[in-house]
Design a protein around this nucleic acid. Structure first.
Lengths: 225, 225
DNA sequence: TTGTTGGTTATCTTTTTGTTAACGAAAACC
DNA sequence: GGTTTTCGTTAACAAAAAGATAACCAACAA
């Protein structure tokens, strides 16, 4: 496997140095940018495996950068971890809604940083390194384009719905409880109520039909074998 | 599955009470200690599955406790989650570097606490990918899929019926009395009348046929050898 | 503005789970 | 042999749990 590249966007040079040093020690390639615009630029050019994004930056803040990335077909699949000041809880929530995959509060412990990064990569890797395209029953689930094909017809599912469907389909036949689904699809450190899963399942069923995802009462959900 | 034990070390009794109550409600066994020394003592004696450790304590603080545990071959593998006061950022970093697996800031939201604990346990759970498939006679009892296969045909049993069948099948040939079955399948701390077992056995027989589970009069039930 | 996404919540249904009582077979007692 | 007691089976019913659904809100983009 080729080396994984992490793009770090932050306006504090000292912090950049520290993070770069530690990531390199772990065997990652590191790209750095000290403002949002350059960050996006670099992301477009190098397609990093993951982006570490400070929220508070002059000119263009992290949330905005994240927003742009999520709209760019080439970049929307790249996992993003926010760096945020401790007190700043509001932006934290806001950021997650924007499509971040995790967030870490400053000051940053390097162990934690590394382990979070690895956790997020693990979450995505399983899918990424293997098949980008799942074919199940009459569905074709295309992770590259975030698109589902059902006998020729294209369905553009929203990100979360897509990822939930993708995860379940990749574990075809196996039951997963709500908490596991939340951890795998939403992320370990993200707190939403577990009924959220139900609602997303319902929305998927609404669009694709209800014979793909099965309910196992008292246990969880499962993609039909 | 034997119950998981969590050791909570904190000098605030109220908080101990609160945490204990919530953990028990989730089905964990709880051990408590109100200072670092006792904490280590208890850890040595009972080998808990996980330790919740307050950082700020008189005499011996959490970080020190963590340090001791990490040096003890018997205890070094036990996951530790720190409880820290929000403001106290320096020790937090220190703690993580000392080998904690996660930390939670006070004041504590119990939902968050529980889900963090479960996340850490999941991370440590090696048997995640363990095969949980039993093949007995012409039955295939697949816990991963929560399905029973009888020569090709799928049976979706309700959760309790499934778990009862699974338990009996896993102890194939051995008789278990009703109380044991209740304890193992339903759980130690919930009370239901033991006739309930009969009813569930009957329902299983109704669906799969009555030659799998045998009655041993005056004793209990057994999965046919 | 309107539409989309992501998430929450309250209400409605369905299913599961548990209790009880009647029944019957076998064992034990006389 | 007849009677009593013990024990499990079964069906009917009640209670509780779980999930589906719809309506709602907030944030944001077009």
């Amino acid at each position: 496997m080729s080396k994984q590249t992490i793009l770090v966007v932050d306006d504090e040079q000292d912090l950049l140095d520290l993070i770069e040093y530690n990531l390199q020690k772990e065997g990652f390639d590191v790209l750095r940018a000290d403002n949002g615009l350059d960050g996006i630029e670099m992301a477009r050019e190098h397609k990093p495996t993951l982006v570490l994004l400070d929220i508070m930056m002059p000119q263009m803040d992290g949330i905005e950068v994240c927003g742009h990335m999520r709209e760019d077909d080439e970049l929307k699949h790249i996992p993003i971890i926010f760096l945020t000041a401790r007190s700043d809880e509001k932006t934290e929530v806001e950021g997650l809604n924007k499509g971040a995959d995790d967030y870490i509060t400053k000051p940053i412990s390097t162990t934690k940083l590394i382990s979070r990064i690895k956790a997020v990569l693990r979450r995505f890797d399983k899918n990424e390194e293997k098949i980008q395209k799942l074919k199940v029953h009459d569905l074709e689930i295309d992770k590259d384009r975030y698109l589902v094909l059902k006998d020729g017809e294209e369905f553009q599912l929203p990100r979360k719905e897509f990822e939930l469907l993708y995860y379940l389909a990749s574990k075809r036949g196996k039951v997963r409880d709500r908490q596991t689904l939340l951890n795998k699809v939403w992320g370990d450190n993200i707190y939403v109520v577990d009924r959220t899963v139900d609602v997303h399942v319902r929305k998927i069923r609404e669009k694709l039909g209800d014979h793909y995802i099965e309910t196992v009462k008292g246990v969880g959900y499962r993609f039909k074998e």
